[in-house]
Nucleic acid binder design. Structure first.
Lengths: 248, 248
DNA sequence: TCAATCATTTTTGTATACAAGAATGATTTT
DNA sequence: AAAATCATTCTTGTATACAAAAATGATTGA
């Protein structure tokens, strides 16, 4: 992975001599993986016991997570893994699509020769991952592909934003089926994106990427739509979260 | 002002029973206004004395500011008002331009009749503010104009991102001259933007807004360019920060 | 039996105490 | 006299103690 997945760690010189930072990362991972399901109350003393520290660094980590938007702090009532409603998720996908589009537009204009090679290689890696049949491997390869584009935009701030939002959407993207031929279509879109970028067609690259991401959002939308009005809705979301492969 | 200027306060029910939150806001304001100049070390005990609290809420506020990107925490060495380098500022303006463009594109498609009225009114308010000759008033009116567009995008998450970045760029936008006819040109651009949005021309609105913001960035760029290779560079930035009127 | 009120307990928010790394300054050595 | 090393002081990072608000549960009243 080229970038780490937090805003700060990209901009700061990495010497994490603060326990709170490690704790934040640990909690972040637990939230992303679903180990701490959405809506979970994050009890300070229990977390402190679990990690073998006092409440102080736990609180500091929770504040960081709250500021980053991953948890919600209700005054005097504690911190909860943030419940992101469907409407808000759609909004976030919309912004993600736009960030990706911008990355693509800039990348088409600014990508270096070396980065072009990396981009092509990461595309091929996606194809290989698909034929290997390993969902996790495809997920990784796909992420690398997108991060390559972020980097090729030569706008570090933009890349940070894109990575940050991407990681926030990660748990929800995993819900995202299943739809068996999606991966193949996705790969075809990747090919178009690569072609647009390497040939310097900025707007084409932007449009391809926007559609590529928006379709995910729409698919996600379809997915939750089929779930609506189901009594055990939450249960099904949970189990899907664990078993579903990464289709992007 | 429609929105408050923090990410969190838009999404949370506002009952700020945490001192740390008030402190964060106070420090945020001090940073934005330049009362705490860039690079200043934020001594925890001194801040605690100044605000009449213990170090604990101060620390929590500083962590929030660090996560939001306004201050930089060097481990074991304290927090500093973040020095944002020129290259990074340009990157941030580039992203800002894109966020605004997206707001405009969506607003053109989704704006309600009532919001159309508000948008027109806020445009007129900008004109009035200009003729009044009061820079602060124009600054406010201009901000309201842009926030109206954010809101009209009907994407709350996008609006939050736009507001957040806007406020982070605020202190640097103030540096931004001076160039005497800029305001008049800016108003003309506003008119074009309004026209594009109310007539539903999504791409036109996006392009206008992108240019509108990018030009600020370029102006900013010009400004710092004239400053380059000057021995008392920092000094001049400081004084300009205080005296310069708001031209956007 | 159900609801409302009050006491108890739990948990967050803040203050203080302590530990450890960094900055500062003096002393010593070359 | 200059530089390096060591002791002191200062500041951050963490733990603990305390205050106050909210959750919980029991008791009382209708």
């Amino acid at each position: 992975m080229i970038f780490s997945h937090t805003y700060k760690s990209m901009t700061k010189t990495d010497r994490p001599l603060r326990r709170a930072d490690k704790l934040r990362q640990a909690l972040e991972d637990d939230i992303a993986t679903g180990a701490l399901p959405i809506g979970t109350r994050l009890d300070e003393v229990k977390l402190a016991q679990r990690f073998g520290v006092s409440r102080t660094p736990i609180r500091e980590a929770l504040i960081e997570l709250a500021t980053a938007g991953l948890v919600e702090q209700k005054p005097r009532r504690g911190a909860f893994v943030r419940e992101i409603g469907i409407p808000r998720l759609i909004e976030m996908f919309e912004v993600m699509a736009d960030l990706e589009a911008t990355c693509g537009r800039l990348a088409a204009r600014r990508i270096s020769l070396a980065e072009t090679q990396i981009l092509k290689a990461s595309h091929i890696a996606c194809e290989d991952a698909l034929t290997s049949g390993d969902p996790d491997r495809y997920y990784q390869a796909n992420q690398h592909f997108h991060e390559t584009i972020y980097q090729a935009s030569h706008n570090g701030f933009l890349a940070e934003q894109a990575i940050g939002l991407h990681s926030r959407l990660a748990p929800y993207r995993r819900l995202q089926l299943r739809a068996r031929n999606r991966v193949a279509v996705s790969l075809h879109e990747h090919a178009e994106i690569v072609a647009a970028i390497v040939s310097g067609q900025a707007e084409a690259a932007a449009d391809c990427l926007r559609q590529h991401v928006l379709i995910q959002g729409e698919r996600f939308n379809d997915f939750v739509a089929t779930l609506a009005a189901t009594s055990t809705q939450q249960e099904r979301e949970r189990s899907s979260l664990k078993s579903a492969s990464a289709a992007e």
